[in-house]
Write a protein that binds this DNA or RNA. Structure first.
Lengths: 211, 211
DNA sequence: CGGCATCCTCTTTGATACTG
DNA sequence: CAGTATCAAAGAGGATGCCG
């Protein structure tokens, strides 16, 4: 893509990561740490291999990511964020928060990429002292302290289970009855109580926003 | 542009503001408040009128901006951010900070849009008790408290003057001698001392980043 | 004029096929 | 596995035209 050609930090940032797919690649690397070409490709449904190659090249030239050769015997090349690329984490976090405010319930045709649950928990939930596991559809993840992880917790105080719509109900409408809770239900209640205040309203709903 | 089609707040945010030019439109509205179609267009060199119209429509549908009819006699339509669009301010601020780390000196062909100085000051400078005016090229702006404004200050404690390269020297390398200071030079020195620590280094310089 | 819509050319995308 | 090659379709950029 042509650069904007403005001497402005915003425009420059967009020259580096503003192209289509670029920030989603960064998102994957932020969540997974280091990924092979094919791993990235299969997580980004709709992104052609040529586009991916072009973006990776550009991000590398921009100092956002770098290629590394895995030590033998698994000598495959992986991509990971540079220190500079890592610095995008707070930006991405805020942007995701912003986007979440107008992200409707998952009724639409949205594709859920593997590992989405840990990302969702990380964004949605405040730090908690408890360890709570979530099973949503075929995804499993848990929160503990101020981080969220994919997979099962070792000693969860509570396990929350439900489908994607119930999960949305829980997080957005604080509807505890939407899901089934095993274990310490009060720990979940406490977590919900610590959620940031509901953002009042977003003018246009998702359906209208996207033609 | 086609949507990403992922049920993910990041992807959704990019569906709303991730298209080319969209975030630059938001930047203008954040800085100027409300602008007419033509004002936006002349601030975005390179953006065709059809593109601008399409982006404005999309941003409006997404609830990021809205159109308003100015009261008579100047009954022209202006665009401004909704409350939801305003919420992009911290995101943009962080993104600009990130971009500034790899934005080189202004030797390149970068175009300086009118009003850039206030934006630059807002991003670069920490809150200050003093009121300091900057004259860079033909732009004038000043900082006071935790905000930055375009135009002349009424009672500046100091006036800093120089060209764009000197301004960059001042902010990035803390080189006070690069510019001429009238009035309370210590106020400027104090401001520089409060700048955040220099970010160590960005792997690839601007020149290499952009082919 | 200010606020777009249209037309046209050129680049980018997205999907598939192919190669070291 | 990690990309490059190819190609149709969509989007970007520029000029111009229309309409209040």
């Amino acid at each position: 893509m042509k650069e904007y050609g403005q001497y402005c930090p915003m425009a420059h940032a967009l020259d580096l990561v503003g192209e289509r797919w670029s920030l989603l690649i960064v998102r994957e690397l932020l969540e997974e740490g280091a990924l092979r070409y094919t791993d990235i490709h299969c997580r980004l449904t709709g992104c052609g291999t040529n586009i991916l190659a072009a973006r990776l090249k550009r991000l590398e030239q921009g100092g956002v990511i770098h290629r590394r050769q895995l030590p033998p015997p698994a000598a495959s090349t992986v991509y990971e964020l540079t220190e500079y690329g890592e610095a995008l984490r707070p930006v991405m976090h805020q942007l995701a928060h912003w986007g979440a405010r107008s992200l409707g319930p998952p009724t639409s045709e949205g594709v859920l990429e593997p590992g989405w649950l840990a990302g969702a928990l990380r964004i949605a939930l405040p730090p908690t002292a408890s360890c709570i596991e979530f099973r949503v559809g075929d995804e499993v993840g848990y929160v503990e302290g101020d981080e969220a992880y994919a997979g099962s917790a070792e000693m969860p105080q509570a396990v929350v289970e439900g489908d994607v719509a119930s999960f949305y109900e829980l997080l957005v409408n604080r509807e505890l009855d939407a899901v089934t809770v095993r274990g310490d239900e009060d720990a979940v209640r406490e977590l919900l109580a610590k959620l940031p205040p509901r953002t009042p309203d977003v003018p246009a709903p998702l359906a209208a926003a996207l033609s």
